[in-house]
Amino acid sequence: MGIYIPVEQGVNLYVEDLNPGGGGKTILFIHGWPLNHTMFEYQFDQLPKAGYRCIGVDLRGFGKSDRPWGGYSYDRMADDIRRVIETLRLEGIILAGFSMGGAIAIRYMARHGGFGVSKLALFAPAAPLFTKRPDFPYGNSIEELNHLIEGTYTDRPKMLEDLGGRFFARYVSAPLQNWFHGIALSSSGHATAMGAALLRDEDLRPDLPKISVPTVIFQGAQDMICPYPLAQATQAGIKHSELVPFAYSGHGLFYCEMGKFNRELMRFVGS
């Protein structure tokens, strides 16, 4: 069931609600940059069969959501997620975020005190920093992110094709690569550039100690976009969090090791 939820004047987010009457636990998924909720197709195909209610949100500027010119900050996007949770009257959910969506989930937990959330699942999160700093030697260079932004404004299809070539560690078919490329191309070019700027500039290190719910981090050992040390630093910053390695996965671990991903997620949700 797809619905639109207003998050501020003139801005509506598209939300896909699967198995709302199933009676099982609810997982709210936040997609990564520059994708939308359909990236979780191979989770949405399976988890509702096991009784879980799965809710996919398209962030502002992405997928079927409205495309405002402003509001592209982790704070504002976390506030958008709060509005979705309040509107749907969700309680005790598992908040799940991939890559930039993981960063937004972390900001949500810190900014809103984990309102409505009982557990946190982070998939290859772009945290605590996506870019290297003098006191943080891991991740991407600021110049690489500037290059992504420039590519967005000059040849976005080529920029996304280059990025897609580093996304999966295992072979994926050309049709699947094309499908994934199409998801990314469906986003607003402006939102794509703004998202890259957030990845470049945001620092989540102060947010991590504010998270107190059970937390799991899934991380591909071969991830070339969010390298493994980022997940280790995130785990170190969140008390009692669990790090689950995916030895054969790159950034797209939700597809590279789909079976393990779904099993580990259900294990965590059900524990």
Rank of each mutant, 00 (worst) to 15 (best):
222 Q>R: 13
109 M>D: 01
132 K>I: 02
206 P>M: 07
225 I>Y: 03
269 V>D: 09
98 F>A: 14
156 R>H: 10
44 F>D: 05
143 E>W: 10
210 K>Q: 07
70 G>H: 10
158 K>M: 03
187 S>A: 15
9 Q>G: 05
220 G>K: 05
163 L>S: 11
148 L>W: 12
63 G>W: 13
216 V>Q: 02
6 P>D: 13
227 P>V: 08
253 L>E: 00
166 R>M: 07
88 L>I: 07
106 I>T: 08
33 W>V: 06
106 I>Q: 03
179 W>M: 12
88 L>Y: 02
175 P>E: 03
215 T>F: 00
232 Q>K: 01
43 Q>W: 09
235 Q>V: 01
211 I>K: 01
4 Y>G: 00
170 R>G: 08
151 G>W: 13
90 L>Y: 08
212 S>F: 05
236 A>P: 00
268 F>W: 12
65 S>W: 01
87 T>Q: 14
235 Q>N: 00
233 A>C: 02
180 F>K: 07
48 P>W: 03
45 D>M: 13
198 L>G: 11
185 L>N: 02
108 Y>A: 10
59 L>G: 08
59 L>N: 07
266 M>N: 11
177 Q>R: 15
54 C>G: 03
191 A>L: 09
105 A>F: 13
76 R>A: 08
118 S>A: 15
213 V>W: 01
219 Q>K: 10
45 D>C: 11
201 D>Q: 07
148 L>Y: 14
94 I>A: 15
16 E>P: 09
80 D>Y: 07
129 L>R: 14
156 R>K: 14
